[in-house]
């Protein structure tokens, strides 16, 4: 009897320690997690796309304009969003220059004349797919304290195991900073 209880205790203690180790490494070091939704097309697929998140960038530490990040949704602490940073603290950025489909019909200049200055400690985030993304254009800039990490790479499980259209294992590719020098 005592040996049974003892072995149950041992097993659950090992279990607890492994779970906690996993949890700590997920929140401070690295996480591999699924993403969903069309807001980051074409960078991330609508479903079955898994991202590699580095947690060194937690709380926005070392994040730059053009980085892809995972953050807690400001309107729901139980949801997380993947977005791209398009404004750092102090930057002047256009609130919403997109929506070209409607733009072509109306000649209004307003979308190119509505700027905000990103407040201290905040970042402006938008999805890569400006047509279908709920982001800073709706909920304003987000505090860096909500940033959980930076996406450095992704695996697209829609791709075949070997040599898919991305000619790599399991659709692996790096997610890069897209803020680049403009050659005129």
């Amino acid at each position: 009897m005592t040996t049974t209880i003892g072995s149950i205790l041992t097993v659950s203690s090992y279990f607890l320690r492994s779970i906690c180790f996993l949890h700590i490494s997920h929140s401070y070091i690295y996480e591999f997690t699924e993403t969903r939704g069309e807001s980051m097309l074409p960078t991330l697929a609508v479903q079955n796309d898994y991202v590699h998140v580095v947690k060194k960038y937690k709380n926005g530490r070392g994040c730059k304009l053009g980085d892809c990040i995972v953050a807690v949704k400001p309107t729901d602490p139980n949801h997380r969003v993947c977005k791209r940073i398009t404004g750092m603290p102090g930057d002047y950025i256009l609130v919403d220059p997109s929506d070209s489909i409607y733009r072509e019909k109306s000649d209004s200049d307003e979308p190119f004349n509505t700027y905000i200055k990103v407040p201290n400690g905040h970042v402006w985030v938008t999805g890569d797919n400006l047509a279908h993304s709920l982001d800073s254009r709706t909920y304003n800039s987000i505090p860096m304290g909500l940033i959980k990490g930076k996406i450095v790479a992704a695996n697209d499980f829609n791709q075949p195991f070997w040599n898919g259209s991305l000619s790599n294992i399991l659709g692996f590719r790096k997610i890069q900073n897209t803020f680049i020098d403009e050659e005129s």
């Binding site: 304009l65 680049i180 020098d181």
Partner: peptide, 13 residues
């Protein structure tokens, strides 16, 4: 000052 660019998209199904 540097001129930089960031490309985003508008995707339709």
């Amino acid at each position: 000052c540097e001129l930089k660019a960031l490309t985003q998209y508008e995707c339709q199904f």
